[in-house]
Design a binder for these strands. Structure first.
Lengths: 216, 216
DNA sequence: AAAATATTACTGACCAGTCAGTTATTAGTT
DNA sequence: AACTAATAACTGACTGGTCAGTAATATTTT
């Protein structure tokens, strides 16, 4: 055995790549275990570093979690807001696009576990709850409210209680995310999100239609 | 100081009353903290006993939790099932009663925290998830499905995708429960459940109405 | 006195966050 | 181009605190 062949180094310096890899690993483990139950040792192992390295890039567990939300959720919200701002067609089409976007970009990705996470830990980690409330929920609600206002202003939707209706729109999406995280494994058939979204949009069409049938 | 006056005993034997008191205390603490984060020491303190006493009545934390669900949720499900079995009037009225029942009996009581709890811990405590799924979710879904089938059979509802529609009915109720447990404290105004239920029922009326207007 | 009920003190396992030390990389020197 | 600091990146053992469950002991009731 030649002993002068330099073995591959035990580790490499990869200052640029680490944060992304750590956040990515954290999303997976947080999603599986929840915030409190996640061991940073596991996150580190999955990211291929040691626990100490985590603390070189993130001051503590909470900030790591915030970084996960920023990376996994906020870009989608940005996209949704741009979509509404540039919308020209009927408001219901905007709604349709938004729900479909949520179903594909959030529900089908690992980010779908985040709502469960936040709901679960809100009581014990109020800072996290406030962060998520301010950065995600408020914005998402405002976005949907704007779509409803637009539709009512253009005579496409009948006048509705905006706040309640926003919640009615969000609820099945949220519930789907929670379902997948918590109960799907207990059933023989997975939740058919496509079918649920179709039924939801059908219900919304009937709910929002002006009294005398669509005005268009 | 007379020393022969028998002081009040430091504790009394109250074999019958303990379980209920412990379960009651557990409901409160589990609701505030979640399952994993709840310290049995706190439950004991709130029930006015010591930690050891808990273990005289419940073999472990999981069984204590199951007892909480049995006491706080199942009686309401029983009531709901009896209600449907004895229903004579229009199916929509049954739906209305069920949702109102949920809003008053679950949402407004401490039991409203249970859904959050189960969703939060399902991943880490699969036995709890299975228990809740089998004892609560399955039954609740079947109940609502039965109402829909009844309405369709009587020509009161248009034909709908039953599974999806059940989820659409449940979702806003569930979301309300989660909201109250997790985010209500962060907002200035509390969630107006009455208004939400009204909007939901209004939406459902439009969604379920047969095409040519109500047939009655 | 014996049985039943309750308390108190303890054990063992767990984990976020810390830090002294190690290894890879870069810059400087010959 | 080879050798040598100097520095940045990384590691992993350790600490301090927590808590479910258990064992030993005490009090109440019959």
């Amino acid at each position: 055995m030649p002993e002068d062949v330099p073995a591959a180094p035990r580790w490499r310096r990869r200052k640029e790549a680490r944060p992304r890899e750590i956040v990515d690993a954290a999303l997976t483990v947080f999603g599986e275990r929840g915030f409190a139950a996640t061991r940073l040792e596991d996150v580190a192992a999955r990211a291929g570093v040691s626990k100490g390295t985590l603390y070189l890039y993130f001051p503590n567990k909470e900030e790591l979690f915030k970084a996960v939300v920023r990376e996994a959720i906020l870009p989608n919200l940005d996209m949704a807001e741009r979509l509404l701002a540039g919308a020209l067609g009927p408001s219901f089409a905007v709604l349709e696009t938004l729900l479909t976007l949520f179903a594909t970009r959030i529900l089908k990705s690992r980010a779908g576990a985040i709502p469960k996470l936040v709901i679960a830990e809100a009581g014990n980690f109020p800072d996290l709850a406030r962060f998520y409330h301010d950065e995600v929920i408020r914005r998402a609600f405002a976005l949907l409210a704007a779509v409803l206002e637009r539709g009512m202003a253009r005579g496409e939707f009948r006048p509705v209680d905006v706040d309640s209706t926003v919640r009615l729109i969000v609820a099945p999406m949220l519930m789907s995310a929670l379902w997948r995280s918590s109960f799907e494994a207990l059933e023989d058939r997975p939740l058919d999100v496509r079918r649920l979204v179709a039924a939801h949009l059908d219900a919304l069409r009937r709910t929002l239609a002006p009294e005398g049938g669509p005005s268009s």
